[in-house]
Amino acid sequence: MHKRLIQVSGFLISTLGWLFVLCTMAMDFWRITQIGGQGGSFIIKVAWYWSNLWKDCFTDSTAVTNCRDFPVLWFVQGVRGLLMCGLTLGFFAAILCFLGMECTYLGGDEQSKDKMLFAGAVFHFVGGENKRTSLGVP
């Protein structure tokens, strides 16, 4: 019973972490800066600059948005590739961990389930380190 509780809680934590990283990849507003709106001006002009991993955008007070995709820089392409590799490894890790848990009836005997669970844990670790390295986190 204690082993199953640890496996289920570890599976939920790791899979939710993978899901949150996947959601942040789809978000547009990674960095937002407000420009303008300073006092002493007769015309109030406010603009927002926002960017993510894919593009830079500028929105003015009339709600006109101008976006510029990042050019082909090898560093940015490398970061994108590492993030996609990390997310792919995390996806396969979630499947392997689900099949390798003791409480599921899929995956075969106990020894093969332990091997699948270990492989899933290694995939989660490698995928997580891959995402941390690409984002510049020490």
Results as ranks from 00 to 15, higher is better:
residue 112 S to G: 03
residue 123 F to L: 11
residue 98 F to S: 04
residue 120 G to L: 08
residue 129 E to N: 13
residue 105 Y to D: 06
residue 96 L to C: 03
residue 87 L to M: 15
residue 90 G to M: 10
residue 81 G to K: 06
residue 100 G to N: 03
residue 68 R to W: 03
residue 78 G to M: 15
residue 97 C to P: 00
residue 57 C to I: 02
residue 132 R to Y: 14
residue 118 F to D: 10
residue 101 M to D: 01
residue 74 W to S: 10
residue 125 F to P: 00
residue 98 F to A: 10
residue 102 E to H: 06
residue 84 M to Q: 10
residue 121 A to C: 01
residue 79 V to A: 05
residue 74 W to H: 12
residue 110 E to L: 11
residue 128 G to S: 13
residue 77 Q to G: 04
residue 124 H to D: 13
residue 91 F to P: 02
residue 78 G to V: 05
residue 127 G to E: 00
residue 70 F to Q: 03
residue 83 L to R: 04
residue 113 K to C: 05
residue 118 F to P: 01
residue 78 G to C: 08
residue 125 F to N: 02
residue 102 E to F: 04
residue 93 A to R: 01
residue 121 A to Q: 07
residue 87 L to K: 03
residue 122 V to P: 06
residue 122 V to K: 01
residue 97 C to H: 08
residue 83 L to G: 01
residue 101 M to T: 06
residue 68 R to C: 13
residue 107 G to R: 03
residue 91 F to E: 05
residue 123 F to N: 00
residue 130 N to A: 14
residue 66 N to V: 08
residue 60 D to C: 11
residue 57 C to M: 07
residue 105 Y to K: 12
residue 105 Y to I: 11
residue 101 M to L: 14
residue 132 R to L: 15
residue 94 A to R: 05
residue 85 C to W: 14
residue 93 A to I: 07
residue 80 R to T: 03
